[in-house]
Design a binder for these strands. Structure first.
Length: 608
RNA sequence: GCUCAUAUAGCUCAGAGGUAGAGCACUUCCUUGGUAAGGAAGAGGUCGAGGGUUCAAGUCCCUCUAUGAGCUCCA
């Protein structure tokens, strides 16, 4: 990073804690200096101060504004507040202008502390401050003051508003007080700030890049999928290009499962409600399920695939020699998500899971979890995804014995620990029937998405009284491992679209090759190439529209077809192709045989 | 589910109470081109749905549906 004009100390770092210069001076703290730059510690201070600066500006523009909290978040900050006036996106510019004016005033940011009792009195007429104070322990409370503006705050802050030039208010939204759905909704303004203009610009450019890659936009442009008001929210319609892409993924994954000893199975979409009562879904997940009643019998449309696979297990008497049994299905599930949460393919009401259930003995859990993690790794590598793992423990709304939960959770941790795999922990984030390992993908823009999941379940085997005969000819209860690797085709493909910006790798691109004959007389040769490619199971199109050559190349490029073949007199005479490789941004003249070899190699590169 | 916003041609968007518009896409014709937009003509809309205000509503009001930004919740 470019050196900043001058080195300014804005804080002290001691024992992992950040103190601003105000606190450090008062409390006489010494430690590592935090310089005014784009380090995490420094940005924490800058952003926190920018949030306060925004509050100060809001207070000037909207004198009745009352403020709740204004924390620093991953890539910026926000402040929650209440005013009688409605604030819209266009008002952000006005607030920014006011902030700039305050920066010009070069206001010192000062700190003092008073007792909680005094603060309660000081802000007696401010109900939001009272809410904040409820959440703060007794004792002395610090107040920061800049100009006429005062806010109770732990800090840290920069010493002067003049340091806060490089910020941007990004959006205005609503947020519940304290994140509690039952409480009032406050106005929230998000913004971001950096130490210098260039880094701010880069950050804003990245947001723009993310918008360009938005899978909802690309999904339309590339003819992958659509939604329709008349069909319903959260119910994706796969268009030909999207369906081709998806079917390739399904085919590759099918083989990958077979190689690993999984058996394909298939069970109904609707199951009697009695079955969901046995499983506990009716009681615990019913609010998210769709139901239908026919001939006085209520059926539940499946939100998960477990029950079908349990019935497959129960179809025969099982021996310990059979275990582990692995059943998999591309299971279509329906979940009634709340109306406000649908988001392109990332969050839908009907989706297909690459779901499998492994039935095994308790002491086979570890090896099977490890094997699934290997499967995950193979797939993620093939698509160039980085990912990390997170263990989710028992939630409040859980069924089953607490001790059993403990054993299962420990089993997951052991599997990871013994193989030296690092992971995070999400306390209370488990499914209602068992703890899980979530697989979170990091995409090209460093965003994280939850996809695959591995869940241990002692509960359903108990409820359905599953059994196998052990080596002593006694009945034992198997364990179920629920697992999905992509999670759902919908979400995974949505993420893949954004990860590659619509430029799918050759092996999965909906249209892999497009042949462009220069003139009508070259059409037969183009068709001959296309049919040969189709025989090789390559999705191929001939661009025979009555448009100029340039136009047809442009269209193929815009559709992000990986390989464009231009053929004319020369190619016909020599039995060659002129290949324009969009992924490598290069052009080649190749014989047909050479080209087909390249294609075969590319297809052979993929294996998971 | 909640808050705010949005909904006009297949797509992207103009149209601030008085006869529905543009570009791209589509159809037809001309053009037969060597690596990112050749030319001309044509067709296409109960202005998301329903109700209300008004002499008159795409435009103002209400309800619903869908979408977007968030909150809360999840693959």
């Amino acid at each position: 990073m470019e050196a900043l004009v001058e080195e300014i100390v804005i804080g002290i770092q001691k024992d992992g804690e950040i103190f601003d210069t105000q606190s450090a001076n008062i409390q006489n703290i010494s430690g590592n200096e935090i310089l005014f730059d784009n380090s995490n510690d420094s940005l924490e201070i800058i952003r926190h101060s920018t949030a306060h600066l925004m509050a100060q500006a809001i207070k000037i523009l909207y004198p009745d504004a009352k403020f709740f909290v204004g924390p620093v978040i991953e890539d910026g900050f926000y402040y929650d507040f209440r005013t009688s006036e409605k604030i819209s996106d266009t008002d952000l510019k006005i607030i920014e202008k006011q902030m700039k004016a305050l920066i010009k005033k070069k206001l010192p940011i000062e700190q003092y502390s008073i007792s909680k009792k005094d603060v309660l009195e000081k802000f007696a007429d401010d109900d939001l401050k009272q809410e904040v104070l409820k959440r703060i322990e007794d004792g002395n409370i610090t107040i920061y003051k800049q100009g006429d503006f005062e806010d109770l705050c732990q800090g840290p802050h920069v010493p002067n508003t003049k340091l806060l030039h490089n910020f941007k208010l990004t959006r205005v939204a609503g947020a519940y007080l304290g994140g509690d759905e039952s409480k009032e909704m406050l106005t929230r303004i998000y913004g971001t700030a950096f130490a210098d203009k260039e880094t701010l610009k880069e950050h804003l450019a990245m947001i723009e890049e993310a918008k360009k890659r938005d899978h909802r936009k690309l999904g339309g442009e590339l003819g992958l999928f659509t939604f329709d008001d008349e069909i319903g929210a959260g119910l994706p319609i796969w268009l030909p290009n999207g369906a081709r892409l998806r079917s390739k993924l399904e085919a590759l994954l099918f083989t990958a499962h077979r190689k690993r000893g999984y058996q394909p199975v298939r069970a109904p979409e609707i199951l009697k409600s009695e079955a969901w009562k046995t499983s506990g879904h009716y009681q615990n997940y019913g609010e998210n399920m769709y139901f239908t009643t026919i001939d006085d019998i209520e059926y539940g449309i499946k939100p998960m695939n477990c029950l079908g696979h349990i019935k497959v297990y129960q179809n025969e008497l099982r021996s310990y020699r059979d275990l582990p049994l692995k059943f998999f299905e591309y299971g279509v599930v329906h979940r009634h998500e709340k109306s406000g949460v649908m988001h392109g393919l990332f969050r839908v009401r009907e989706f297909t899971q690459d779901d499998a259930h492994i039935f095994c003995t308790p002491d086979q859990i570890k090896e099977n979890v490890i094997e699934v993690l290997g499967f995950v790794d193979d797939i993620m590598k093939s698509f160039g995804f980085e990912y990390n793992l997170e263990i989710s423990t028992r939630p409040d709304k859980a069924i089953g014995d607490e001790k059993v939960w403990e054993i299962a959770t420990q089993g997951l941790k052991d599997a990871l620990d013994e193989n030296g795999i690092s992971y995070g922990i999400d306390e209370g984030g488990g499914a209602f029937y068992g703890p899980k390992i979530d697989i979170k993908i990091t995409d090209a823009l460093k965003r994280k998405w939850q996809c695959g999941t591995i869940q241990i379940d002692f509960n359903l085997p108990e409820r359905f009284e599953l059994e196998y005969t052990n080596e002593n000819n006694e009945k034992s209860q198997p364990v179920m491992i629920h697992r999905a690797i992509l999670g759902s085709f919908e979400r995974f493909i949505g993420i893949l679209i954004e990860h590659v910006g619509g430029e799918f790798p050759f092996f999965i691109a909906p249209t892999q090759v497009i042949v462009i004959p220069i003139a009508d007389v070259h059409l037969d040769y183009a068709k001959e190439l296309a049919s040969e490619l189709m025989m090789m199971e390559i999705d191929c199109e001939v661009s025979s529209k009555n448009e100029s050559l340039n136009k047809r190349i442009r269209l193929a490029e815009k559709q992000r077809v990986p390989m464009i073949l231009v053929v004319g007199d020369e190619e016909i005479a020599n039995k060659t192709v002129a290949l324009r490789d969009r992924r490598e941004r290069k052009q080649y003249n190749l014989t047909k045989a050479e080209f087909y070899n390249i294609i075969k190699e590319k297809m052979n590169e993929v294996h998971f």
